[in-house]
Design a protein around this nucleic acid. Sequence first.
DNA 1: GTTCCTGCAAAGAGTTTGCACGAAA
DNA 2: TTTCGTGCAAACTCTTTGCAGGAAC
Lengths: 146, 146
Amino acid sequence: MKPTEERKKILTGVGIKYSKQRDLILELLNHSEMPLTAETLYIQIQAAEISMNLSTVYRVLDLFTMKGLVTKNYIGDMNKALYERNRMEHKHYLICLKCKRNIPIYECPLEKFGRYLEEKMNIDIVSHKVELYGYCSDCKQKQMEA
Amino acid sequence: MKPTEERKKILTGVGIKYSKQRDLILELLNHSEMPLTAETLYIQIQAAEISMNLSTVYRVLDLFTMKGLVTKNYIGDMNKALYERNRMEHKHYLICLKCKRNIPIYECPLEKFGRYLEEKMNIDIVSHKVELYGYCSDCKQKQMEA
DNA sequence: GTTCCTGCAAAGAGTTTGCACGAAA
DNA sequence: TTTCGTGCAAACTCTTTGCAGGAAC
C-alpha cells in the first residue's frame, strides 16, 4: 500500500473526505517528532509543491483535532497553539530552555499518583499534561564545555 | 501595618513604583485562590471604585511577571493567558471539565521522578508543570445524582 | 450531480505599543 | 521637578468565518 493510500484510509476511517491538502498536512504531522504550530506547518507546506491557504491549515488542524487524529496544546507562556499527531501513546516533553526543542519522555509517574488523588480527594481524573523545563543533554554538554 | 502599606512594601521591594492601579491588581491577585485572565481581573476592577484601562492591566501583569510577583501560563487549548500570584509554593491544579474551576493540589510526584530522569537522560530539569483534567468532587457528585 | 473543501478577504479575540498627560517620589 | 505610570487609540498577532468557486465521490 502506497503511503498516500494509507493516509487516505486514515481520513476515510474517521469519516472525512480525502483532499490533497489534508493528505499533505497529515503526512507532515506523521513525520514530525515534535509538536508544530500552524505557521510552522504552513511554511513547510510552502516548501512543498502543493500550495494552501493559512485558513485551510487551521481548518484542517481543527478537523483533525475533533476527529482525534491530532492533539492541540498551548505550552508555557507562548500564545500559539501546538499541534501534534495523536499516536495514542502516553508521553510528555522536556522543553529545552536553550534550544527550545521538545524532547519526548515516555515514562510517567502520574498514573499511580492520579489514582491516589482520586481516592483522597473524591475526584475523577480523565487526563493530564506534564511539561518539564530544563536543558537537554546537548545543551547541558555545551554549557559545561564553555 | 495596613494592608495597602504591606503591598506598597512589596512593590518597592522588587524595585517598582507604587500606584493605586498596581496596588489594586496586587490585592486582587493576593485574594484569588486560582489563576485569573486579564479580562477577569479587568471585570473585577470595574466593580471596584478604581477605574483602569485594559492595557494598564496587561502592562501591570507583564511587569509583575518580570519581577517574579506573578506567574503567567496558558492552560489546555485555551488561548488566553492566566495570571496568578507567585506564592513560592509548589502546586498544580485539577481543571474541572464541567465547571472549569482550578482546584489546587499541593502534593507532587515529580520531584523524585525528575531526579531519576536527570540521571537517566543526562539532562537538567529546572522546573515543571502539571495539569490534571477531570471532574471535581462537586461535579462528580451531581453527575452521580443525575 | 451532489456534497463539502478550499481560497480569499474580512472580521474577531487577545495582547502590545506610541504618545501625551498626569501622578508618584 | 523629574521620573515614570496611565489612558486612549491604533496596531499587531493568532485564529475564525462567510461566501463563492472548485474538487472529490
